[in-house]
Lab assay of single mutants.
Amino acid sequence: TQTTHELTIPNNLIGCIIGRQGANINEIRQMSGAQIKIANPVEGSSGRQVTITGSAASISLAQYLINARLSSE
C-alpha cells in the first residue's frame, strides 16, 4: 500500500537535499524507491514542503537518507 509523508525542510538546507542539478534528490529517489516531491518556495515561509510517497519501508528509507544529508551539512 502507498502512503504519503510530508515534512518541511528549512530553506537554507534544501540545497543540500536537492544537490547539483538534482543529483542528491535523484540518488535518494533511486535508493529509497519512493516518490519525492519538493514544493516550490512559498513567499514568507522559512521552509519547503517535501512530500514522500511510497511503501512504508521506502518512506522511512527516504527520510533516513534526507536526515543523513541534513546532519552531514
Rank of each mutant, 00 (worst) to 15 (best):
I9P: 01
A57R: 13
A57C: 11
V50T: 00
I18P: 01
T1K: 07
Q2S: 13
K37T: 13
T53N: 04
S46V: 07
I52H: 00
Y64H: 14
T51S: 11
S60L: 05
R69N: 09
Q30V: 06
T51M: 10
S45D: 13
T53V: 08
I59K: 05
S60C: 09
I38V: 09
I36G: 01
L65C: 01
R20I: 10
I36V: 08
I25L: 10
Q63P: 00
Q35G: 08
P10Q: 03
R29V: 08
Q30W: 05
K37S: 09
S71R: 10
E27D: 09
A34I: 01
I38P: 02
T8I: 12
R69P: 02
R48I: 07
I17V: 09
Q63M: 11
E73V: 15
C16A: 13
S32P: 00
L13R: 09
L7N: 01
S32V: 01
S71E: 12
E6L: 10
V42L: 08
H5W: 14
T53L: 05
A68S: 13
I52S: 03
A62W: 00
I36Y: 01
A39I: 11
N40T: 07
I59W: 01
I25N: 00
T3F: 15
A34S: 08
R48L: 05
M31D: 05
R29H: 06
E6W: 09
T53E: 10
E27G: 06
Q63H: 08
N12K: 12
N24E: 12
A34G: 02
T1R: 09
K37V: 11
N26F: 05
I59Y: 00
I25H: 15
I52E: 02
G33S: 04
N24D: 12
I25A: 03
I9N: 01
K37W: 06
K37Y: 12
G15N: 12
R20V: 11
Q30T: 14
G44I: 02
Q63T: 12
P10W: 00
L13H: 10
T51H: 05
S55D: 08
Q30I: 15
E6M: 14
S32N: 00
T51G: 03
A56V: 10
H5L: 15
S45E: 12
A57V: 06
A57F: 09
A68P: 05
N12V: 05
R29A: 10
G22L: 04
I52C: 00
N12C: 06
I52Y: 00
V50Y: 03
A57T: 08
M31C: 13
T1S: 12
S46M: 08
A62R: 02
L61A: 12
V42A: 10
K37G: 06
S71V: 08
G54C: 01
T1Q: 03
I14H: 03
G54A: 00
N67S: 11
I66W: 00
V50A: 02
A56L: 13
S58W: 00
Q63G: 06
N11L: 03
N11E: 11
N67R: 08
S45T: 13
P41F: 13
I9K: 03
V50K: 02
A56K: 13
N67W: 07
A68F: 04
E6Y: 15
I66M: 09
Q30S: 13
Q30F: 09
Y64V: 15
G47F: 08
G19T: 02
I36E: 00
N40C: 09
T8K: 08
I38T: 04
I14T: 07
A39E: 08
R29N: 13
A68H: 15
R48K: 04
G33A: 04
Q35L: 08
G15W: 08
I28Y: 02
I28V: 06
S32T: 07
C16N: 12
G33H: 02
Q63C: 10
Q21T: 07
Q2W: 13
N12R: 13
A56F: 13
N24I: 10
I14R: 03
S55L: 01
I9Y: 03
I25V: 05
N24F: 08
T8R: 11
I25E: 03
Q30A: 12
G22C: 09
E27K: 13
G44Q: 05
S55I: 00
T51V: 11
I9A: 02
Q21V: 01
I17P: 00
N11R: 06
T3V: 13
E73G: 11
H5S: 14
I28G: 01
L65A: 14
Q30R: 14
V50D: 01
E43I: 12
R29T: 09
I9L: 10
S58Y: 00
N40V: 06
S60E: 15
R69V: 03
G22V: 02
S46K: 12
E43R: 10
A56H: 11
T53G: 05
E73P: 07
N26L: 05
A56Q: 14
T53A: 08
Q49P: 05
L7K: 03
E27A: 07
I28K: 00
S45W: 04
G33D: 02
L65W: 07
I25R: 01
S55R: 05
E6G: 03
N67T: 08
A57W: 06
T3C: 12
G33I: 05
N67A: 08
A68V: 07
V50P: 00
L13P: 00
A57D: 14
T3N: 14
I18C: 02
R20L: 11
S58R: 05
C16W: 09
A68C: 15
M31R: 14
A23Y: 05
S45Q: 10
T8W: 10
I52P: 02
I25T: 04
I38L: 09
S46P: 11
I28R: 01
Q30M: 08
S55E: 09
L13M: 13
R20T: 07
V50I: 13
A23G: 10
A56I: 11
I36W: 00
N67H: 08
I14V: 08
I17K: 00
M31T: 10
N67V: 03
L70W: 03
T51K: 12
R20Q: 12
I52W: 00
G47K: 12
E43T: 08
V42W: 03
N67C: 07
R69Y: 00
S71K: 11
G47T: 12
E6S: 14
I52D: 03
N12S: 11
A56N: 10
P41A: 13
Q21A: 09
G54R: 01
I14M: 08
L65G: 04
T51N: 04
C16Q: 12
G15S: 11
L65H: 15
I59Q: 04
I17D: 03
T8G: 03
R20H: 15
Q2C: 06
G22R: 06
A39T: 06
S32D: 00
Q30E: 12
G22N: 14
R20G: 07
S55G: 06
G22F: 05
E27R: 12
G33F: 00
E43D: 08
T3I: 05
A56M: 14
I59A: 11
S55M: 03
V42P: 07
I38W: 03
M31E: 13
G54D: 01
H5F: 05
E43M: 13
E43F: 07
I38E: 02
N40M: 10
G19C: 02
G15M: 12
I9R: 02
V42E: 12
Q35M: 09
I52K: 02
L61K: 15
R69E: 04
I52L: 11
I25P: 01
I18F: 05
N40E: 12
I59E: 02
Q2P: 08
V50N: 01
I9E: 00
I59H: 05
A68Q: 15
N11G: 07
G19H: 01
Q35I: 09
C16M: 14
A68L: 07
N11V: 05
G22T: 04
G54W: 00
L61N: 06
G44T: 04
Q63Y: 04
N24K: 14
